[in-house]
Design a protein around this nucleic acid. Structure first.
Length: 288
DNA sequence: GTCCAGGTTTTTA
DNA sequence: TAAAAACATGGA
């Protein structure tokens, strides 16, 4: 696996290290970040993105078939290789999904290079609890206030903060969290933090157990239903069988795959979901 | 002012 | 059981 990539450690900005990773499949960095699976990223003027995950930060730039990472001295590039799921070849998955599926073939003629990110389980769970009946700019704002107020400063030279742990949030009350302006979701966040911190819901175990059991485990949290559970499993636990069904996906399945469900996509249903979701957002007129 | 936002819970019939 | 309504907040 490692020998698929060429690492070049060299050039630097201040005390940052630069890593170049050669891609052997198609990757659209911008779409991958902006397609609704993550919320902590900032597009810079030079076309790069500053991306945060847990207590880590990286600046990343796509330059033709190379992904260029800039990270500070002690940080581990392997975290970000895994985060962007670079060990996996998505061309193979997309080919499989397009085989004998003309609808999907049509979608990938417009949308390509999306990867499923390997985000941290708690951050993903908490973020998608916040996402319910909410819009993306406001979701980002609430998460930014959550990190800014209760996370730790990542670096002395800028204003980026880590995502606060479940333990940290579990000790806060409704009033202390009112600064988030998260509305009715605040009590859901607290309930999730308590259950996760006390291992009443064991996020680590969700990696291996049956997918239905995993959904049930997550739905023990007050404020977590099937959709948030599947988002957590897909984006936070990397369970590709998960298939989050929000309003867009419900409409899209009805229109594009009438009478069918996620089982037509097999074990990579989650990847198909992300493409269909993004395609639907690009073509709202399709539902008129 | 009204409507809507990557849902879920609570209430109602 | 199934279908509405309620839930906080803020931008369009």
């Amino acid at each position: 696996m490692y020998n698929n990539f060429k690492f070049a450690i060299g050039g630097n900005i201040l005390e940052y290290k630069q890593f170049k990773v050669k891609l052997n499949d198609k990757f659209n960095l911008k779409t991958t970040l902006e397609c609704g699976q993550c919320f902590r990223f900032y597009e810079e003027n030079d076309g790069s993105f500053t991306v945060l995950s847990g207590d880590k930060l990286v600046k990343v730039l796509l330059n033709e078939d190379k992904l260029v990472f800039y990270l500070s001295g002690e940080e581990d590039i392997n975290y970000w290789i895994k985060f962007f799921d670079l060990y996996r070849n998505y061309d193979n998955i997309i080919n499989d999904l397009s085989l004998s599926d003309t609808v999907f073939s049509n979608i990938i003629s417009e949308v390509s290079g999306i990867r499923i990110l390997n985000q941290q389980p708690w951050e993903t769970l908490c973020s998608f609890i916040i996402s319910q009946n909410n819009n993306i700019p406001r979701i980002k704002g609430i998460i930014e206030r959550l990190c800014g107020n209760f996370g730790n400063k990542i670096c002395d030279f800028n204003e980026y903060y880590s995502f606060p742990s479940a333990e940290t949030i579990s000790k806060l009350n409704d009033n202390e969290l009112s600064i988030l302006r998260a509305g009715f979701r605040t009590k859901y966040i607290i309930n999730a933090a308590k259950k996760v911190a006390e291992r009443e819901v064991d996020l680590e175990s969700l990696e291996n157990i049956d997918i239905e059991e995993a959904r049930k485990e997550l739905m023990k949290i007050h404020g977590v239903g099937p959709k948030v559970a599947d988002c957590t499993l897909l984006y936070g636990i990397h369970r590709f069988e998960a298939f989050p069904m929000d309003v867009w996906m419900k409409r899209a399945m009805k229109k594009l795959y009438p009478g069918l469900d996620s089982s037509v996509f097999g074990k990579f249903a989650g990847v198909a979901q992300q493409y269909i979701f993004h395609y639907s957002r690009m073509h709202p007129e399709m539902f008129d």
